Amino acid sequence: MIRAFLLGLLFVGSAHAACPPAPALPSVEQAATWAAKAPDRGLLWRISRGGHSSYLFGSLHVGKADWAYAGPALRAAWAQTEVLAVELDPADVGAVLAAMPKAPPLPPVLAQRLDIQARAACLSPGTLSALPAMLQLSMLSLMEARRDGFDAGFGQDVMLLARAKSEGRPVQSLESVEEQLLALEPEAAELPAIVDGTLRQLQKGQMREPLRKLATAWSRGDLGALANYPRWCACADTPAERAWLKRVNDDRNGPLAERVAALHGAGQRLLVAVGALHMSGPRALPKLLAEQGFTVEALLPAK
């Protein structure tokens, strides 16, 4: 969620042919058609405990323009809930990032390679330099995704947040900005290897295929493919990369489950929108919630 927020703040040039294309916003008529005819995408569970139900939606933080609209099952879940819970409300992000101390410098060689990639993405000089290294890489990855028509502004969690704000629906953050930043940043000893590996993917044009595969798996609700993500993402090939991926995904699931359980236990009927990779693996959110006494019923993909 931090990454999607930051992408909206980037100044992206478009004069050069090699620049990632800026997303084309739909017309009012297009948006109305897509909203009315949107199919079900992603993963959805009903979670019940204490005499009432909430819903758990596995979202994708990027999407295509026509993916951003809720299908019938998600619309029904919206109608049956009263609070939207997300990893992080972007409204919480700005002040914390503004007060964040400048990131420690990377080794000069890595900093230069990052700068080259930023220029290839047509970002203004210095746009990323104040951010932690992993957020810089996340921004560059999101810019690369634009070459295949994906954009953070079309992620369904972003659209759900916009709808909640327009309707005055309460929004609950399941994490703090500080917690997300801590999870995203590798240990100091691991950082150079992870930055190097991600830069190699970007420089060789190898970032796009795993993202396309991830997006397709999410769109189909293919939980098996999502569970195997570390095997095919080319982002977990070294011990440092595997340790970071575990920390940024699996290790966050326990606290996320506890906060969902606490909000639900307070009587709130929640629509919880969390990244789909948190729904897979040995510490998947649906499994952890079942261990906390929830009845967990899969709704999407439809059987």
Rank of each mutant, 00 (worst) to 15 (best):
V195M: 02
Q80R: 01
E297V: 15
P39V: 08
L182V: 06
R146Y: 07
R46Y: 10
R200S: 12
M139R: 02
R252C: 01
R46W: 12
H52D: 05
A76Q: 15
L181D: 14
A236V: 10
R41W: 10
K102N: 08
L161Y: 07
V86N: 01
M134T: 15
A77T: 15
A15K: 06
E29S: 01
L191P: 03
A227L: 06
A189K: 12
G205N: 10
W244E: 00
L160A: 01
E178S: 08
V86A: 01
A118G: 13
L285W: 05
V260Y: 00
Q201N: 13
A262P: 11
A290I: 12
P286E: 07
A302D: 15
A183N: 08
V86R: 00
L285T: 09
Q117E: 08
I194A: 02
D151H: 05
A22R: 08
A17R: 13
A99F: 00
A273E: 10
L6T: 14
L7D: 09
G126T: 09
L184E: 09
G275S: 01
A188F: 04
P20T: 06
P192Y: 03
R200Y: 14
A227G: 10
S27P: 11
G221H: 12
Q206W: 14
R49D: 08
C19E: 06
L174R: 04
S59E: 02
A240C: 01
E185H: 09
Q112K: 03
A243Y: 07
E209A: 04
A38H: 04
D251A: 02
W232L: 02
V109W: 07
R208P: 11
A99H: 00
R259K: 07
L135D: 15
R169I: 05
G205T: 15
G168V: 14
L10I: 11
L199I: 07
A36G: 07
L202V: 15
P186V: 04
L137F: 04
W244F: 02
A22C: 05
L7S: 09
Y55R: 02
A266D: 14
M139I: 15
E241K: 06
S53Q: 13
P125V: 08
P192S: 01
E297H: 04
Q156N: 03
A31W: 05
R49M: 02
A243G: 06
F11Q: 09
D157M: 01
A65M: 05
P192C: 00
C122W: 09
F154K: 00
V93D: 02
T216D: 12
V28P: 08
R208H: 12
G224R: 09
A284I: 14
S129N: 11
N249G: 07
L44C: 06
A77I: 13
P105F: 04
S14Y: 06
G197D: 09
S280Q: 10
R46S: 05
L135H: 13
A31F: 06
S27Q: 10
D251N: 05
V83C: 02
L56M: 11
W218I: 07
R231Q: 14
A193W: 07
Y55W: 15
L256T: 14
A121F: 06
K102Q: 09
G197H: 12
A243R: 04
A35S: 05
L97P: 13
A290V: 09
V96Y: 06
L161W: 05
V248H: 02
S129D: 14
R119W: 11
